[in-house]
C-alpha cells in the first residue's frame, strides 16, 4: 500500500476514535464535573502535607496543586480507568472482521486511540487544567521548550498506555474472562503511574520499584515535564525511557496478538 494511502487510513481511524466520544457532549460535561470535584478534594488533601513541610522532592505546594489539576485532566487522555474494546471484540468474535481489514488491528487501535485522546485532551483535560489555573493559580510549562517537551511526552504517554492496555486485552484470547486481568492492571497502573500520589512522595524503595515499570511514563513523566521538574539531560532521559517503553509494549502487543490469533476459534456460522 502506498504511504499516503496508508496514512489516510490512520487518519480515518483517528477521526472515528474522536467522533465516537464527541457524540456524547452531556456525558463529557458530567465527567468534567466529576473530575473537578475530585480535583478539589485531592488538592485539599495534598495541600495539608505542606502545612508541615516546605517541599517533598521537586514538589512544593504550588507544584503539587499543578500536579493535581493536570492529572485530573490527563487521566482520561491516557485512559486511566481502562479500555476493553479489543477484549470484547475477541469474546464476541467481532475480531474476525478486524482481521480481514487492510490495517493491522494494533495499528488501527493506536490510530483510533490518538483520535480518542485528542478528544479527551480538548474536552476533558482542558477544563480541569483551566480550573487549576484560574482558581488555584497553578503554573504553565515554564518555557516554549517545556511546552514542546510536554507535547512530545504526552504523545508518547498515550502510546505507552495503549501498548499496556492492548497487552491486557489480548488476555481475552486465552481466557473467557478478561475483567480480572483488567482490574489488576488498573490497580497497578493507578498507583505506579503516579496518578494516585506523586512518585516523588514515595519512600525510596517504592519509588525504585515504580521507576522500573512503564507506568510513570504514562502520567508522572508528562506532569514532571509540565511543572519543570525535568530538564536538560534528565528530560532527555525521561523521553527516551518513554519511547523505549512505547516500543517495548507495542512490540509485545504485536507478538502476543499474533500468537493469540493462531489459537483463535470463532464460533457461529
Amino acid at each position: 500500500m502506498p504511504l499516503a494511502e496508508s496514512l489516510s487510513l490512520d487518519l480515518a481511524m483517528a477521526r472515528v476514535g474522536f467522533g465516537r466520544y464527541a457524540a456524547y457532549p452531556i456525558a463529557s460535561a458530567a465527567g468534567i464535573f466529576t473530575n473537578v470535584v475530585f480535583g478539589l478534594m485531592r488538592g485539599s488533601i495534598l495541600l495539608a502535607l505542606f502545612a508541615q513541610r516546605e517541599r517533598i522532592g521537586a514538589y512544593d505546594a504550588s507544584a503539587t496543586l499543578t500536579y493535581v489539576w493536570l492529572t485530573q485532566g490527563l487521566l482520561n487522555v491516557v485512559a486511566m480507568w481502562g479500555w476493553q474494546d479489543l477484549a470484547i471484540r475477541v469474546r464476541t468474535g467481532d475480531i474476525a472482521t478486524d482481521l480481514i481489514r487492510p490495517i493491522h488491528p494494533l495499528r488501527a487501535a493506536l490510530a483510533a486511540d490518538y483520535g480518542r485522546a485528542a478528544y479527551q485532551l480538548l474536552v476533558r483535560a482542558v477544563p480541569p487544567i483551566l480550573v487549576g489555573i484560574v482558581i488555584f493559580r497553578t503554573s504553565l510549562p515554564p518555557s516554549p521548550v517545556a511546552w514542546l517537551a510536554f507535547a512530545v511526552s504526552l504523545t508518547l504517554a498515550i502510546a505507552v498506555s495503549l501498548g499496556f492496555r492492548f497487552v491486557y486485552n489480548v488476555a481475552a484470547f486465552w481466557t473467557t474472562d478478561h475483567r480480572g486481568a483488567m482490574i489488576l492492571a488498573l490497580v497497578v497502573m493507578s498507583v505506579f503511574s503516579g496518578f494516585t500520589i506523586p512518585i516523588q512522595f514515595f519512600p525510596p524503595w517504592l519509588a525504585a520499584i515504580a521507576s522500573a515499570t512503564p507506568f510513570p511514563s504514562m502520567i508522572q513523566t508528562p506532569v514532571d515535564v509540565w511543572i519543570g521538574a525535568l530538564s536538560g539531560s534528565s528530560l532527555v532521559g525521561a523521553l527516551v525511557a518513554q519511547l523505549a517503553w512505547a516500543a517495548a509494549l507495542l512490540g509485545l502487543s504485536y507478538g502476543l496478538f499474533a500468537r493469540g490469533t493462531r489459537r483463535l476459534v470463532i464460533q457461529g456460522g
Binding site: 495534598l46 508541615q52 475483567r179 480480572g180 488498573l186 490497580v187
Partner: peptide, 30 residues
Amino acid sequence: SFAMETFGTLLVSFIDFVAILVIFANVPQL
C-alpha cells in the same frame, strides 16, 4: 473468574490506602 475479580476488587479498595501510607511516610500528621 469469581476468585480473580474478588481479589481485584480487594486490591482496588487498597489504592487510596496506599496514598495514605505514602502521605504518612512524609508527614507525622494530616
